[in-house]
Amino acid sequence: MNRRQELALGALGALLALGACEAVGRAGIVRRSYLPPASEVLARAVELAGDRTFLDDVAVTLRAWALGLGLACAIAIPLGLLLGSVPVVDDAVRAVIEFLRPLPSVALIPLVSLLLGTGTETEVTLITYASIWPILFNTVYGLGETDPLAKDTLRTFGFGRLSILLRVELPATAPFIVAGLRISAATALVLATATELLSGFGQGLGIFIAQAQLATDGTRDVLAGVVWAGVLGLVINGVLVWGERRAFPWRAGARGTRGATRAAWRSPGGSGARRGGSGGSGPTASAAGRRGGPDRAGAHGPGAAPPGGVTGRPREHGSGEAADGEAPT
């Protein structure tokens, strides 16, 4: 099935889903004000695009999101580099990190609200806190995956520790950091909307949804707001994936054009092609590259290195998770 067929089917699927929602809404199975038909919701969503106040709300949310994400990077990347380079510190800190990690960041909203009120400060603090983890873990993991041969080579040439860090480890870790950034971006959006939903007053997309929820016939607005949130998430993810592919084209080979990867594996006598998931994961990895959602973060498929290459470790998808650093909120 080639690309165009896929796209066509995808569009069909989307239409079918919309049609189903429309039918449910119009059939009156659930009361109209409870669940309006999809067409009404979409119409309202489009209408909101022209609403000045709504766009201001979205801008406020995005601003808090960007600020929180930026702060998270500023804290997590140096910290991750430190932890990854000095194993003793890593070991020591790990216990505390594992302690803090399972706590859902949304649970911190009441505490931080008591401390800082219901303004942007609370929102940005929470976003920063939640976004630090994926970036941090991915940075540490990425450092661990650096080719030791390259490091040794530089060391023999007399480069100092810091130099090695900057010249070899940082560029090698960069793809992982960006993958972590992608997860964090989604997490940051979740925290931003969650904080706003709870605070209920002020400006922001979540506040628009919260106030629509209170209004008597507000389901349409709530759903329209949710559609906007989903679209925002998609756009952010898409932009980051595109940026990632532009910045790290060699890893694009891993995600690969599907034909190329598959052809490589189908070489005659290519018993390598029989290497389990490899053949399949080519298209998967590239599909992942296309969407690059959180599940696929760091799933640098087997194509990342030539089989039996320097780092020729069989990268099962299980190992990819280590780079996920999935601490979603």
Binding site: V30, Y34, L35, V106, A186, L189, V190, T193, A194, L197, G206, I209, A210, A212, Q213, G218, T219, V222, L223, G225, V226, A229, G230, V231, G233, L234, N237, G293
Partner: peptide, 14 residues
């Protein structure tokens, strides 16, 4: 891509 917390108001209303 939908942030999960945004779904909750939908279900609250329904």
């Amino acid at each position: 891509a939908l942030p999960p917390p945004t779904l909750v108001p939908v279900f609250v209303v329904v």
